[in-house]
Computed example of a mutant assay.
Amino acid sequence: MDVTLWIAAALLATVALLGGISKTFVPLPKLAAAPGGEWTGHAGAGLVRTLGILELLAAVGLVLPAVLGIAPVMVAVTAICWILLMLGAIVTHLRYGDPRFIVLNLVYLGLAAYVAWGRLGPQPFPS
């Protein structure tokens, strides 16, 4: 189970890193033209950049605390925060009539729930 939790966290961290980089550094018109990014054309630049920074922090928080052995409970906390972020993404895609990415957001949400459950319950990191 420990291995699958690491894989799930690494997968989520990769998704968060890629999403964070694009939302933080890619120009908004280019993001709005990309599939699934249409909503960024209606959102303020500050909101998009803030979400990008949050995703970059999530990428770090899903892996680094456990690797360094410093406050490894933050992996589960970050996974819970990722669940909230995915709920917001689902609402946003529904609101802008873009249901294509809802299934993907649900998969990410499920992975984050698995990581949070696993690290807070049956397979916590040693203290």
Results as ranks from 00 to 15, higher is better:
111 L>V: 10
4 T>G: 01
48 V>P: 04
54 L>G: 09
44 G>H: 06
5 L>I: 15
105 N>H: 15
94 L>M: 13
72 P>R: 09
31 L>T: 01
74 M>K: 04
114 Y>N: 04
34 A>E: 15
56 L>M: 11
127 S>L: 15
25 F>I: 11
8 A>H: 08
93 H>G: 07
30 K>Q: 15
95 R>G: 10
59 A>N: 08
106 L>T: 00
25 F>Q: 08
23 K>E: 06
54 L>H: 03
50 T>W: 03
33 A>R: 11
39 W>N: 02
69 G>N: 07
100 R>M: 11
106 L>V: 10
31 L>A: 05
32 A>Y: 00
124 P>G: 06
28 L>N: 02
29 P>I: 06
17 L>A: 15
99 P>E: 04
6 W>R: 13
112 A>Y: 10
65 P>N: 13
13 A>N: 10
111 L>M: 15
124 P>M: 05
19 G>S: 15
24 T>I: 07
23 K>I: 00
96 Y>G: 00
115 V>N: 05
53 I>R: 05
19 G>L: 10
49 R>Q: 02
3 V>D: 11
93 H>L: 10
68 L>Q: 09
127 S>D: 14
48 V>H: 02
105 N>T: 05
55 E>T: 01
99 P>F: 00
86 M>W: 04
2 D>V: 12
76 A>M: 09
117 W>H: 12
66 A>H: 08
47 L>D: 01
108 Y>C: 14
104 L>E: 08
116 A>Q: 10
39 W>C: 05
61 G>V: 08
52 G>E: 06
109 L>V: 02
59 A>Q: 06
56 L>F: 09
71 A>D: 07
103 V>I: 14
31 L>V: 03
4 T>K: 04
60 V>G: 01
107 V>P: 03
106 L>H: 04
46 G>N: 07
28 L>I: 12
17 L>Q: 08
77 V>N: 01
125 F>K: 00
63 V>E: 03
50 T>P: 04
54 L>K: 07
102 I>M: 04
122 P>Y: 00
3 V>Q: 12
10 A>V: 15
41 G>N: 14
68 L>M: 14
102 I>P: 07
89 A>W: 01
122 P>H: 04
81 C>P: 07
87 L>C: 15
103 V>C: 02
15 V>G: 01
123 Q>S: 14
40 T>Y: 04
21 I>F: 11
120 L>W: 14
32 A>D: 10
110 G>I: 02
34 A>W: 13
16 A>N: 11
37 G>T: 07
23 K>S: 02
126 P>Y: 07
18 L>W: 03
105 N>P: 06
16 A>D: 07
30 K>D: 08
82 W>G: 01
6 W>T: 04
6 W>F: 12
94 L>W: 09
47 L>I: 12
35 P>M: 10
56 L>S: 00
43 A>C: 03
53 I>M: 09
37 G>I: 02
